[in-house]
């Protein structure tokens, strides 16, 4: 078999239609993951009894198991749970009514949450305790101090790692083909299945992923420049 350069282009065009699916899965899992991660990080930093142990367990379990496994566990486990609960409480929800992409949203959010929890936690720990004390000293409440003083600084510190998490989730989203969701990668397989030009199709997918990754890196750089304005004294 010979390389067919023109088919790379053809495939590329056809793959464009799958970009929104990939982006939506990434965006949803990163957004919900960020919220889960923030809560998890705060539970651990404030050592809330019981909940902080649960949070720590969640983080080690998720980070200690593959993302594909999470997806499969949710895919096979969630319907059992939903059906059991429906039967118990007489709800009308059926597991079969959960859209396939819903499994991806839920499981990837759980995955992203555990990774982001660690990123956010280290960002929060990097903020000098004196910042919080100064906020208290001017009379702020804890939520005010966190929101106005600690979070912005923690976010600035965490940004490079958060950006890596986003890229990780973008690439990881390719696993959705296992639950029959058609993302860029799955689309490449479909495109190639008629003429067996898998290499060309996957090469086109790679080009798209690369482009999206570069885009995320560019956006990160822009945000970094804006929020790190105050950090003139850094090493860089």
């Amino acid at each position: 078999m010979k390389l067919d350069p023109s088919f790379i282009w053809t495939a590329l065009i056809q793959l464009l239609s799958a970009i929104p699916t990939t982006l939506v899965i990434t965006a949803v899992s990163v957004t919900i993951g960020f919220i889960i991660g923030l809560i998890t990080a705060l539970l651990r930093i404030y050592k809330i009894p019981v909940l902080s142990q649960i949070a720590a367990g969640y983080v080690t379990f998720i980070r200690g198991t593959p993302m594909l496994t999470h997806l499969l566990l949710i895919y096979f486990g969630l319907p059992m749970l939903v059906d059991a609960l429906s039967a118990q409480f007489g709800w009308s929800i059926k597991s079969s009514s959960i859209p396939m992409i819903g499994f991806a949203f839920i499981s990837f959010s759980i995955t992203a949450g555990a990774y982001m929890a660690e990123v956010i936690r280290s960002g929060l720990l990097a903020v000098n305790r004196g910042q919080l004390e100064a906020a208290y000293s001017v009379g702020m409440t804890t939520p005010q101090a966190l929101r106005r003083i600690v979070f912005p600084q923690a976010l600035a510190v965490s940004l490079p790692n958060l950006s890596n998490s986003v890229i990780g989730m973008l690439h990881g989203s390719t696993l959705v083909f296992t639950v029959s969701v058609v993302d860029i990668n799955a689309k490449a397989q479909i495109v190639a299945s008629t003429n067996w030009k898998f290499f060309e199709a996957y090469l086109a997918a790679a080009v798209i992923f690369w482009g999206l990754t570069l885009l995320i890196e560019r956006i990160t750089a822009v945000i970094e420049k804006r929020i790190n304005l105050y950090n003139r004294g850094g090493v860089a």
Partner: peptide, 14 residues
Amino acid sequence: SAMVFQQYNLFKHK
């Protein structure tokens, strides 16, 4: 009351 700290503790991002 208000505190003036030994290490200043100005809000770094402001």
